[in-house]
Design a protein around this nucleic acid. Structure first.
Lengths: 399, 399
DNA sequence: TTCATTTGGGGTCAAGCACAACAAAATCAT
DNA sequence: ATGATTTTGTTGTGCTTGACCCCAAATGAA
């Protein structure tokens, strides 16, 4: 009989293995976040603050796990012996899934953050979770067969437009899909034989921005995304994603911004996402298409008083939501995505002014409002981060 | 010339020393949080998940640093060789300071959480920061001379009713003291020759509750305290205090609860602390004295419709504030202190109901509303935690 | 081309840490 | 008293990082 001593989850002590695992983990994360350009070994030595010998050993171990690759540096470098460039091995990939109202997007993303494949499969309106599992699994299988031969698939990350229980990925509520307490994650895992993790879409968005976008090297970030189906929020605290006790944290779209507002589907009154919505901007500008840049252009060009008034009204409520978030979380930077980014672009000074006026001065004067950087791939990148989480936590666990 | 290689602050690698430091740190924290009863060495072994030999070495090191003491276990224990009880050495102390409107409280607290001394020095109304430094330093010196001989003073922790910059303790704004950008912390340190750290009072309150009170063993806690001067908030995320980028996080008293409310001193409208305030409860119940249990009793006994209406109104706004906090932070437990605790005690079902109705279901159904446990010493305990922070981070750094 | 200079990899050895194994001690139950 | 049980103390081993020496690979100047 083989007895394996697993560390107790409540154990607070660190063994020698933990040390190695932590260093391996941080190194892999560092290489991953450096993307296609990578870091030289000497850069890694400086960034990690460890001895050269140690970095060599760690890189060697990651290399033998085939998680990273070393290549010769470009010839026109500085004086001295050239240091090999370490990049993430891009045959190591994650698959990502984003179920939407009328379609399911799936993609493949490599360690290092490069998106390899994107597909979008239409789904019948009002499809239930099990139906979506079938469509997703089918699309994933054909994707694998057709263009992912020889790749090592670490797992699947799902970006859900709703609340997801962190420990088992149960979809507690996805209002626009009509899903309540659906085990989408577990079913997809059973159906594909791959590990599947799921989380709220905006929470994954901020992870993406934090790793590759406007939140790089910032430890405390609030992200607000305005989408067709409402406003999502995600928070990074001390460099780590804020999940809360069960994974539901970051729902900034359901904070109060107007006591005289309407009843939200969530049961409360005057939620941020009922007062600030893309639909009214689209209808006032006469747009039906939903592209972000088009809406922004239309808002920018419009001289229609009704449009200007609506923009000003929404910016006012956006400022209130930001006041709540800034006073509670004291972020260093706030990232605005989707139509909130367009709203900000139309009148940046106005929003800055309102936020400065309403937030506590200490928190408000230091915060930077910024537009999110990542584009259409943001959820793929974020869901990839989620799928890679286990690998990052213990790179050596891989066979 | 002596060159000391300091680890870079951005360095992500862990050396062998970090491992030891981390284990020592966790062990000391564990012993500290076990208070006067302590833990046996075998309990520590189980809790830390390390080898007996390792625990023995770690305890030995802490003992030789005179931070912990071992004593024989009580005789009527279980079968087997008795395991020595490890307790925090209570000659290791921190001093704490809490400047209030009309007085300054100072205290001495030992490692392990026992409060040794409490003093309250009246201060002239409207005293400025430098004047308060003088009074505090004088009181501290006499406290040391009179009753702290032979104790090892680690440092001073200051609980400030206002916003405090984390890195240098600058008091950015303490509205009820009338202080703006006052270097109270630095001056007190210069005046006493002791290291001084400062933080917002409610943030320290939640640290205290998290270590010794209703937040023990809970990883995600929101704390709301209703005091004479307003409502303070503190947050624990993943077992760690939420500071935000600069230390101003947790200001739940300044989230919007009523768009039709009055202008707050902070510049915003309808803040939680302008709508929910102790003053109106005191005046309606005809109380002038401020003791918490008396107010609670008065609220409980009253049949005056005006009192009942005001209680209901305040509970309504408290529910809104909780909805904002719960949706953003998804805490496992919410602790109510001060008059908010009294408010909750009067109609617990009503508040539970409103919170369940207004919060997102996933976050709202799991959260427990609870009354804070710690009494009058809460700020002393919290400020002690703050003062001990450096010691916990690196116990071996002590001479 | 040659040589000094700079930068960084490879390998070996030492130090620190946690852990396993064995022997001994202290208590309770019979 | 004797045995069972639990835990401690001690010693040696393995793993990980770190310091050191030597050498390799690039640049730049003579």
């Amino acid at each position: 009989m083989l007895l394996v001593t697993l560390p107790d989850s409540t154990a607070r002590g660190l063994g020698n293995e933990s040390l190695r695992r932590e260093n391996l983990s941080n190194l892999l994360r560092l290489v991953h976040s450096s993307g296609a350009s990578g870091h030289s070994r000497s850069e890694l030595t400086a960034l990690m603050g460890l001895n050269r010998s140690t970095i060599a050993a760690l890189v060697g171990e990651l290399e033998s796990l085939r998680l990273v690759e070393e290549r010769d540096p470009p010839p026109n470098a500085r004086v001295g012996r050239p240091s090999p460039i370490v990049t993430a091995a891009d045959h190591v990939i994650a698959l990502t899934v984003n179920p939407e109202v009328d379609a399911i997007s799936i993609a493949a993303i490599a360690l290092g953050g490069r998106v390899l494949e994107r597909r979008r499969v239409n789904s019948p309106p009002g499809i239930d979770s099990d139906g979506a599992v079938e469509i997703t699994a089918g699309a994933i299988h054909s994707l694998i067969d057709e263009s992912l031969a020889g790749r090592r698939i670490i797992g699947i990350g799902v970006a859900v437009p709703g609340q997801v229980r962190a420990d088992d990925g149960l979809v507690r509520l996805a209002p626009h899909l009509g899903w309540v307490d659906q085990p989408f994650t577990a079913r997809l895992s059973a159906r594909t034989g791959l590990p599947v993790a799921a989380a709220n879409d905006a929470s994954l968005g901020v992870r993406a921005e934090s790793t590759f976008g406007a939140g790089r090297d910032i430890q405390d970030v609030v992200y607000l995304n305005g989408g067709a189906s409402g406003i999502g929020g995600g928070v990074i605290v001390g460099g780590r994603a804020l999940t809360g006790a069960d994974g539901y944290a970051g729902e900034l779209g359901h904070t109060l911004v107007n006591s005289a507002g309407v009843l939200c589907h969530c049961g409360a009154i005057g939620c941020f996402e009922t007062e600030v919505a893309r639909a009214s901007l689209l209808s006032l500008t006469g747009l039906t298409d939903a592209r972000a840049d088009e809406l922004e252009q239309a808002l920018h060009d419009s001289r229609d008083p009704a449009v200007l008034a609506e923009v000003d009204r929404q910016i006012g409520y956006l400022a209130v939501a930001l006041r709540n978030a800034i006073n509670i979380l004291n972020p260093q930077r706030v990232l605005l995505g989707g139509f909130l980014s367009a709203l900000y672009a139309v009148a940046p000074g106005r929003l800055d002014e309102l936020v400065a006026q309403q937030s506590l001065r200490a928190s408000g004067e230091a915060v930077e409002l910024t537009r999110a950087e990542l584009g259409a791939d943001i959820l793929t990148v974020g869901a990839g981060e989620l799928a890679f989480t286990g690998l990052f936590a213990d790179p050596a666990s891989l066979a």
